[in-house]
């Protein structure tokens, strides 16, 4: 029975990590848009290349934030949560 419970915990943690990374779609689209617009801007005004590029990198890094949150959640679910949850389960069972 305990094996089954631990198996469910591990499987659900992996599943949750996978689901969390769906959030990677948003930053991907957002950064793609930003880069496309930056390319357009450079094509229109090549003399502004420097400032456009630095602004774009800044914006990309901020757009990346939500993806990074998802990544942190996924990493926690894979590397931290199983140990903690199994510990909680064992404590509850008095093992």
């Amino acid at each position: 029975m305990l094996e089954l419970a631990i198996g469910i915990i591990l499987g659900c943690c992996a599943l949750g990590a996978g689901c969390a990374m769906i959030a990677g779609i948003g930053p991907g689209i957002g950064e793609g848009n930003a880069v496309a617009k930056a390319c357009e801007a450079i094509g229109r005004q090549p003399e502004c290349k420097g400032s456009v590029t630095s602004t774009m990198i800044m914006g990309c890094a901020i757009a990346e934030t939500t993806g990074i949150y998802a990544l942190v959640v996924a990493i926690l679910l894979i590397f931290v949560a199983p140990n903690t949850l199994v510990g909680v389960l064992k404590a509850a069972l008095g093992l």
Partner: peptide, 10 residues
């Protein structure tokens, strides 16, 4: 905090 930490950690 999470932005900086998450990038370096990842």
């Amino acid at each position: 905090a999470f932005r900086h930490f998450g990038n370096v950690l990842s």
